[in-house]
């Protein structure tokens, strides 16, 4: 048992990888439809948005905090950008994504200011900013959904590109969305930043202990603003991408998504006490969660069970993480 705990502490990715393999094999045995390319591709596509948001949550969790405001930020960036595009008759890809990312950064910096200067627990800060931003969008900007007929066509065309298409056994084509590649690139960049830059080391150091990080000479203020700014940027980007991928901009979207994303991140081995977690673990956690929740239908389980399953995953994953780190707390 002790050596297992040690192995898990060194390589937390193995645990979630094992869970993923068990889940995939079990689901595939129960219903072979799972292995059809169309299903696999749709699962990968479904993990893009959750995955990018999970990277944002990972950054905050590495520093010892938790973020529940990112769905509101994502929706704010998406809805404001699309509304602006419709109002000005503008269409494009790069500029809108830059705008959504910038909105996300701005909102993220507000979180950072509260967390750093006012020393308040991140959960409560982000609960406040998230609710305020959601209230602002719905109460001031508007509640109407922008549908496919009004959505900027270039934006939609960008998100519907496929990397490649294969022909399935029954002759129907199945394409892998190019957005999966985009997600992989973003994840790689975050991974490189965390593992090979001074900023990345300072994020882990901040999570290990703020006072210690400061004594060693890390600029904790800059690190905090970087973390929440980047988390906001990822949220804003993911928000617009989400709108482009489902061809609608709905200001009431993504309600409750924070729980799924946090579930995926803790499943990926990140510790809420900070300092522990990796991009690879998080990506595996996202994929595992997406595979399990999206396979309930082909397993013949009623979809009303989905929340119970997500909740049990959070409890099991956090209990496992707490067990792994039990020495640290005691």
């Amino acid at each position: 048992m002790r050596s297992l705990a040690l192995a898990l502490r060194r390589h937390p990715e193995w645990m979630v990888a094992a869970v993923l393999v068990v889940a995939v094999v079990t689901i595939g045995l129960i219903n072979p439809v799972f292995w059809q390319p169309a299903n696999i591709f749709s699962l990968l596509r479904a993990s893009v948005i959750t995955g990018i948001l999970a990277l944002a949550v990972l950054l905050v969790m590495l520093s010892g905090g938790i973020d529940v405001s990112f769905p509101a930020f994502a929706i704010a960036a998406m809805y404001l950008t699309v509304r602006a595009m419709v109002a000005w008759g503008f269409d494009g890809v790069l500029l809108p994504f830059a705008m959504a990312t910038a909105i996300g950064i701005g909102l993220g910096l507000v979180n950072a200011a509260f967390v750093h200067y006012l020393r308040m627990i991140p959960l409560i800060v982000t609960l406040g900013t998230g609710t305020a931003v959601r209230g602002f969008i719905l109460g001031v900007v508007g509640t109407s959904q922008i549908n496919i007929d009004q959505m900027p066509p270039l934006l939609i065309n960008f998100a519907r590109q496929d990397l490649f298409t294969v022909t399935q056994a029954d002759g129907s084509p199945a394409g892998l969305s190019a957005m999966v590649l985009l997600y992989a690139v973003i994840a790689l960049l975050v991974h490189l930043m965390l593992r090979h830059t001074m900023m990345g080391r300072s994020i882990y150091a901040l999570g290990g202990g703020e006072e210690a990080a400061r004594r060693v000479g890390f600029n904790t203020r800059r690190t905090t603003f970087f973390i929440y700014g980047l988390a906001g940027a990822l949220a804003g980007f993911a928000g617009l991408l989400h709108g482009a991928m489902i061809w609608t901009a709905n200001p009431r979207d993504m309600v409750g998504l924070e729980l799924d994303v946090i579930a995926a991140v803790v499943l990926g081995g990140a510790s809420i006490f900070g300092g522990r977690g990796s991009v690879i673990g998080t990506m595996l956690g996202v994929l595992t969660l997406v595979v399990i929740t999206n396979s309930l239908i082909i397993l013949g389980v009623d979809t009303t069970w989905q929340r119970v399953v997500v909740g049990l995953i959070v409890i099991a994953a956090t209990a496992a993480t707490a067990w792994r780190d039990r020495k640290r707390i005691a």
């Binding site: 006490f273 069970w305 929340r307 119970v308 909740g311 049990l312 409890i315 209990a319």
Partner: peptide, 26 residues
């Protein structure tokens, strides 16, 4: 969960909150 398994209150109650709401749905 919080005292025996030493799960952080935030995550423990996020998880159980999902389960309780999920049971309501079921």
């Amino acid at each position: 969960l919080i005292t025996r398994l030493r799960v952080t209150p935030i995550l423990a109650t996020i998880g159980t909150g999902q389960v309780f709401t999920g049971i309501c749905l079921v």
